[in-house]
Simulated assay, not measured.
Amino acid sequence: MSRPYRVAIAGTGGIAGAHAEALRAAVTGPSAGAGTSGGDGTSVGVGTGRAELVAAVDVELDRAKTFAETWSIPLATTSLAEALDSGQIDLVHICTPPGSHVELAAQALVAGATAVVEKPIAISLAAVDELLAAEAASSGSVAVVSQHRFGSGARRLRGIVESGAFGRPLIATCNTLWYRDAEYFAVPWRGSFEIEGGGPTMGHGIHQMDLLLATLGEWTEVSAVAARTSRDTSTEDVSMALVRFESGVLASVVNSVVSPRQTSSLRFDFENATVELDHLYGYEDQDFTVTAAPGFEDEITAAWAKGPAGQPSNHLAQLTAVLDALDSGQEPPVRLADARTTLELVAAIYKSSFSGRPVARGGIASDDPFAQRMDGTGAPWS
């Protein structure tokens, strides 16, 4: 594409700044020596700008205007339709609360734009399926923000799994142990099944669970429990799940917003090595630890030394991949259908927790209450 992609950002809260910063940093062309280079060859901070921020949209006009002034955006408005009518928009970055994602993404698709949507993509499986239908009828597409997939450490790990260099993966753990106090939940849309879609299973742990699935492949069954232990919300504040994978791997998943020592961690035990990732909101290569089984030290060290390096898991990593895909006429990552797989696991965790029974992949039909809402027939504490 000869001109920069024209971008509107809908929702100008905290995460919108990360999108704007990544879009400004996304460049094309060889490094001129003034910037840094990602391990996958991506130049950062030099070259030709690939994106032009042309509209800021927010339900509060003053907030949209402040964001527009901060990022030198010419149009501030409360209407995405107005932004789309103002001139050709190539991408719409949707950074609003989850309950509005599908409606705004559908507007972008009708205009033929690509919608780049923050997780969770929607607050129900039914809503995702509506958006899949809208995408099929549009010349545009949907890319779901899953930035942890794009760090070099995760890409190196996926290569290890695909090559079998560490032996078969056997067990895994996936923990999102965060702390959110009463002030955090004072924001009206938080802690609500109606607007946020759920608690830490939906809005916090989904990024780590997405990386778990991207690494290990198709899941087949989940057994789970969820509870509201402390926070004054409509949703759970803790959930625990046991997930079976098609490959035979077993994984435990814990999501919490009541854990004062915060951590995001994944662990993968292979036949010949353990790979651990410990971080909070984003990782770099040094956040991975690899431990070889006795007698496999040289082999494991050599295998881990191969592959990409130097790319943190951040919005720039994924947005660069999105722009690269658009440049080549391909569908940008992460596809809506891929994100639905993760959201189906979330829905299954809720259904298993509230029904007391395991839930198989594909076990939530379109007419199931848990397809319509994550709390299905109602949380036990409601």
Rank of each mutant, 00 (worst) to 15 (best):
D269K: 03
P74V: 13
S86W: 15
S139G: 01
R361S: 13
S139Y: 04
E135Q: 12
C174E: 03
L316Y: 04
T77I: 05
S353R: 01
A303E: 00
A273T: 14
P333D: 13
G47A: 04
E82Q: 13
K65M: 12
L125C: 08
E52Y: 00
A64E: 04
A16C: 06
S252Q: 15
A143S: 08
H207E: 14
E118H: 03
A26S: 03
R335Y: 06
D278A: 14
G199F: 09
E183H: 12
A122V: 03
S192E: 05
E103F: 09
H93G: 04
N314C: 12
T320Y: 11
F288Q: 08
S152P: 14
T220D: 08
L170I: 13
D298E: 11
P380H: 01
A133E: 13
A83G: 13
H207W: 14
S352T: 02
S252P: 15
V359T: 13
A113T: 01
V145G: 04
S223G: 03
L242F: 10
G99N: 08
L277R: 13
T377G: 09
A224T: 01
A309L: 09
V254H: 10
V257M: 05
I195V: 09
T235I: 05
R155E: 14
G310Y: 11
P30V: 09
F150E: 07
A136E: 04
A136M: 05
A134R: 15
A8L: 08
P294C: 07
T289E: 07
A51S: 14
A137E: 06
L323E: 04
W189E: 15
L91R: 01
